[in-house]
Structure formats: structure tokens, C-alpha cells
């Protein structure tokens, strides 16, 4: 009985209205990946430590693996799938990660990209220390983070150039 219980959930995902039924205990990550097929967001540790599951809820970068789905009711969620612009171009953050090779196996990358997107919204020209402080909740097990920090710097420069 209890396991078949469903609750209604309505929120905005990457600009589109979503209406779905979820298990009350489902996490936002489960709904994104399993219900809505938005598998860009990854589950790493599942305990809020690694940041692979980072998404933006009402503009704030949070760990979707610990975010109860029902708490997204009425909110606006942005995932890595929503970063391309209307003509399908990658965002400046995505382009910078590609250009600088700020990625190896790629598993942490969606989380890094989302955390960076939020960081640059709060602070458009962060120092190296501010970049590292902004990304301390995102772990990469492949690299030494150097190219990731380079990518964030490049993204900040690109964004400054493209700003109208």
C-alpha cells in the first residue's frame, strides 16, 4: 500500500512546466533522472558530499540527492540540460569547460558546471580563492582541479565580453 502512494508535484524544469506524480520519499534527483529522464544530473555519493548532483533551485545551487522532490513544489529548477540557449549553443560555462579541458571522466562535470553557473551569477569576476571557495562542495576524483579553476576563470572572462 504505502509504496504505491503517490503525491502530485508541479515545478518548472529548464523553463518548462512539469506536472508529475512522485513517491513522497522521492528526491529531486530521482524525479529528474528516473521520472523525467533528465540524466545529465549525476548521483555520486548520495550523501551531499560530492556535488555531482548539483542543480539550481530558484537560482541557488543545492544537492539534489538530499533535496526532497516535494520541496520543489512551485519552484524553478535548472539542470545541465537547461544551460544551452534557444539556438542550441552551449553556455559560456560549458564552452569554457570544453576549451580548458576542465573535465576528465566527466562524471563530476554537470555538478561543476552548475555550481560554476551559480557562482558566476553571485560573483561575476571571482578571484582564484573565491573560485576554490565556491567549488569546495564539488569533488573531482580525476584531476588536481587546476583546469577546472582555469575553466571558471575563462567562463568569467567570456561572460564579461558577451555581456551587452
Amino acid at each position: 500500500m504505502r509504496s504505491t502512494m503517490r503525491a502530485e508535484l508541479r515545478f518548472t524544469l529548464n523553463g518548462a512546466a512539469v506536472e508529475t506524480m512522485v513517491r513522497p520519499q522521492a528526491r529531486l534527483l530521482d524525479v529528474l533522472r528516473d521520472t523525467l529522464g533528465a540524466t545529465g544530473t549525476k548521483e555520486g555519493c548520495g550523501e551531499g558530499e560530492c556535488g555531482a548532483c548539483t542543480v539550481l533551485v530558484d537560482g541557488r545551487a543545492v544537492a539534489s540527492c538530499l533535496f526532497p522532490a516535494l520541496e520543489a513544489e512551485g519552484k524553478t529548477v535548472l539542470t545541465v540540460e537547461g544551460l544551452r540557449n534557444a539556438s542550441g549553443e552551449l553556455s559560456v560555462v560549458q564552452r569554457a569547460f570544453v576549451d580548458k579541458g576542465g573535465t576528465q571522466c566527466g562524471f563530476c562535470t554537470p555538478g561543476m558546471v552548475m555550481a560554476t553557473t551559480a557562482l558566476l551569477q553571485e560573483n561575476p569576476s571571482p578571484s582564484d580563492d573565491e573560485i576554490r571557495a565556491g567549488l569546495v562542495g564539488n569533488l573531482c576524483r580525476c584531476t588536481g582541479y587546476v583546469q577546472i579553476v582555469d575553466a571558471v576563470k575563462q567562463a568569467a572572462e567570456l561572460a564579461a565580453k558577451e555581456r551587452p
Binding site: 551531499g48 545551487a61 555550481a115
Partner: peptide, 9 residues
């Protein structure tokens, strides 16, 4: 406490 994502939650 923890990291930035968790402090926002």
C-alpha cells in the same frame, strides 16, 4: 559547516 550546497539547504 559542510560545503556551500549543503549550507544553502
Amino acid at each position: 559547516v559542510a560545503g556551500p550546497q549543503l549550507r544553502r539547504m
